[in-house]
């Protein structure tokens, strides 16, 4: 499970760390996109370590489309809101839920349908992962996390829905530095903190070499 929307809120350093370990293969990546061509998860795709992608929008990475056509990449597609809700449910101890999104479409094929409040709904099972790689702006030493603007996106939900959660952060501050009202992801969801090797230059993340 990997956070981020496109390249926004993506744990670039953690993705690089997987690429540095070519023995790690046949990964199922649960993420909204597979980054962009040659960037973020797009790099991990090019390194041949991804077997399957589960998310909502893979057409923005032409390499993903090519790999799917070649038959080297499996894809499981969800509407974006159903995708994140399945992850939220996975983190909140909910096995499955009914939702009206996608009813009557190709993505509803094979799913159980029930009517609630006169509306058709389909059954979606929760999604969990062995590991979640997420990106936050700041952590305190306990692992409480706060995010930066729209780089929050899928990260807080993913922080709840994996056996091991690794957060890449720009900065670690002493425990107690955050106003408790501002904490978005409480520390008990987070297992490991890694300082990012990337920093923002002119508003764009670049590798700090």
């Amino acid at each position: 499970m990997v956070g981020g929307f496109g390249l926004c809120g993506t744990p670039f350093t953690l993705i690089d760390a997987i690429i540095e370990q070519p023995a790690i293969r046949n990964l199922t990546i649960i993420s909204n996109n597979l980054g962009e061509p040659g960037k973020g998860l797009g790099l991990l795709l090019l390194s041949g370590q991804i077997k399957k992608a589960v998310g909502s929008y893979f057409t923005s990475n032409r390499d993903a489309v090519k790999a799917w056509k070649r038959g080297t990449l499996e894809i499981e597609l969800y509407p974006q809101g159903t995708f994140v809700e399945a992850i939220r449910a996975g983190g909140a101890g909910i096995a499955a839920f009914y939702v009206k999104t996608g009813v009557g479409t190709e993505l509803a094929k094979g799913r159980e349908e029930r009517i609630f409040n006169s509306e058709r709904n389909i059954l979606i099972e929760a999604i969990r992962a062995k590991a979640a790689l997420i990106k936050a702006a700041k952590a305190d030493a306990l692992g409480n996390l706060i995010y930066s603007k729209s780089a929050r996106n899928f990260n807080p939900a993913m922080a709840t829905a994996a056996d091991v959660v690794i957060a890449e952060v720009d900065e670690i501050v002493p425990a107690g530095s955050f106003d408790p009202e501002q904490v978005v992801t409480p520390h008990n969801f987070v297992d490991y903190l890694v300082i990012s090797r990337y920093w923002k230059e002119g508003g764009v993340y670049v590798k700090n070499t």
Partner: peptide, 28 residues
């Protein structure tokens, strides 16, 4: 420019006074 602040089309945007930020889960 701040690529932590983008639209759903992935273009950089700004926040108006009174704007709110939330997760994808809250958004959907």
């Amino acid at each position: 420019l701040d690529m932590d602040c983008i639209s759903a089309s992935k273009h950089p945007v700004t926040l108006e006074p009174g704007a709110a930020i939330f997760s994808s889960s809250d958004s959907f």
